[in-house]
Computed example of a mutant assay.
Amino acid sequence: MRRHPFLMLAAIILTVVVAWTVWWQVTHHDTRNQPAARETRTAAMPSSSEQARLKTIAERFEHASRDWGTDPASWDKGLTAIRTPDTMSDAAMGKVSTLKRAKTLGPDAPSPWCGDDPNGAVCATWPTMLDYWRQQAWTMGARVDGMDVSVNTDGTVRVSGRSRIIIWSDTQNAITYRGIHGGEWWDLSPVTGTRTWTDTLTITNGRITARQSAGNTDWMADPWFKTWNTNPMEAAGSLTDRRQDGIPVEGQTPDLGLTHDRDVDVLANRTILSGSQWEQVFARDPERMNANTGDSTYD
């Protein structure tokens, strides 16, 4: 059958239109709804002056948050010098930080003696964790003893540091020594050592607004942001660079009047007398003790 010329012409025109449409879409594809190419940016390192400013703020914060109680450098200055103060203040930390603490953290948290009877006389006498531990140990404290501070590309500050700690319980079982001329001394021997720690600090408008701490440093080296629920005298056995030196204190061994919790082990005093100050005592009374052998008996 013979096809009509009009139909043949229409078919040719339709084929051309379809082909042209396909060509246009391929060569002029619509990019309006396509996702934009992701822009890659590299964080700019803070300037040297800004880095110095951030480091100074970080160092101030670490000292304000970690220095507390007895200064370990005073270990040989006698009983009064090493007594832990009965109060702690976070005022210095508040000047460089906006961080908030839970009520269960730090020295002001409720004492264990308040758990069963918060309205009782014992709780009223020793209401805080600082009060409680001051009755278990005559001496507690720490000082930052070195920091490595660096600024990250995002402006946060990484601080790796070390705190030197001091702790001493009581005169219980302290060694005594009687001199040939009637003098008497006893051995004061606190424990010192170090703990390491690492913080990443966020600083905004000159103050610490966030802190991430690595590791599980005990509260002696992080007093404001840890729970004071572990015995620091037990932890003293694992201190790095641990030392237990001693000095002679003239007079009879005193009763310090501490109210020990019978469930808390106290730190043992050392069992051998040694050190330069003891050598001076031995020199005055050579017949009574042999300093070279560390003999802790007397005639």
Results as ranks from 00 to 15, higher is better:
Asp285Phe: 08
Val149Cys: 09
Gln212Ser: 14
Gln135Ala: 01
Thr98Leu: 14
Ile12Arg: 04
Leu273Glu: 12
Ala36Glu: 14
Ala64Gln: 11
Ala58Arg: 11
Asn173Ile: 00
Ser74Ile: 00
Ile175Gly: 01
Leu130Lys: 04
Trp278Ile: 01
Pro85Arg: 03
Leu188Cys: 07
Gln135Ile: 01
Leu258Tyr: 10
Ser274Ala: 14
Leu267Glu: 03
Glu279Val: 05
Asp261His: 00
Pro232Tyr: 05
Ala174Glu: 12
Ala10Gln: 08
Asn292Cys: 10
Ser49Cys: 00
Ala283His: 06
Lys100Trp: 12
Asp199Met: 00
Pro127Cys: 07
Asp285Tyr: 11
Trp197His: 12
Gly106Val: 11
Asp117Ile: 00
Arg3Glu: 09
Ala92Leu: 14
Glu234Asn: 09
Asp148Lys: 13
Gly155Arg: 08
Ile166Val: 08
Trp278Ala: 03
Ser47Ala: 09
Pro5Ile: 09
Thr259Ile: 06
Asp299Leu: 11
Ala10Met: 13
Ser169Pro: 01
Met1Val: 11
Ala81Gly: 10
Ala121Cys: 00
Ala221Tyr: 02
Ala221Val: 01
Ser150Trp: 01
Met1Pro: 09
Thr227Asp: 13
Arg3Ile: 10
Arg164Ile: 00
Thr42Trp: 02
Lys55Arg: 11
Thr192Leu: 12
Thr200Ala: 05
Val22His: 05
Asp76Leu: 09
Gly141Cys: 03
His181Gly: 07
Glu234Ser: 12
Glu62Lys: 01
Leu130Thr: 06
Leu273Val: 15
Gln136Pro: 02
Ile57Asn: 08
Ala81Lys: 03
Ser47Val: 06
Gly193Ala: 04
Asp148Leu: 04
Leu188Asp: 02
Gly155Phe: 04
Gln277Asp: 14
Met93Asp: 13
Trp185His: 11
Leu54Thr: 01
Pro232Val: 05
Leu7Val: 13
Asp299Ile: 09
Gly179Asp: 06
Ile247Gly: 02
Ala19Lys: 00
Asp295Phe: 11
Arg158Met: 04
Ser47Arg: 07
Trp228Leu: 09
Arg284Pro: 01
Asp148Gln: 08
Ile82Phe: 07
Met233Arg: 06
Asn205Ala: 14
Ala291Leu: 13
